[in-house]
């Protein structure tokens, strides 16, 4: 019986912690990160502006990573590691990109 109670208590604690972490991520932060990332299936639209399913899924990934405790910079770095700096709507001011700036 006490084992059942302990498991139940643990489940409540885990659920509460999960809910709290999710609640800490503001939609504003999600939007801020999404607005800086290129929607990969559209031309020249950000993840925040695109109505496509892919963009929605990318927003979900952004939300999830922020909820897991990553900073907006770390979330952007995750996308850059996979897509290259092409994913950033505003490329960093370094190297060849300086010519454009």
């Amino acid at each position: 019986m006490s084992r059942v109670a302990a498991v139940a208590l643990l489940a409540v604690v885990v659920l509460a912690a999960g809910a709290r972490a999710a609640a800490l991520v503001s939609e504003e932060t999600v939007h801020e990160v999404a607005a800086q990332l290129r929607c990969v299936v559209c031309q020249s639209l950000s993840v925040a502006d695109s109505p496509s399913e892919t963009a929605h899924q990318m927003q979900a990934i952004i939300r999830e990573r922020l909820a897991a405790g990553e900073s907006p910079e770390q979330v952007k770095a995750y996308f850059v590691e996979r897509y290259g700096i092409w994913i950033l709507l505003s490329p960093p001011r370094q190297g060849f990109n300086l010519v454009v700036w």
């Binding site: 299936v41 399913e53 892919t54 899924q57 990318m58 979900a60 990934i61 996308f79 996979r82």
Partner: peptide
Amino acid sequence: PSGRVSVDYGVYG
């Protein structure tokens, strides 16, 4: 279904 694997691989089309 969640698109996670596609994003993990950097798929854009």
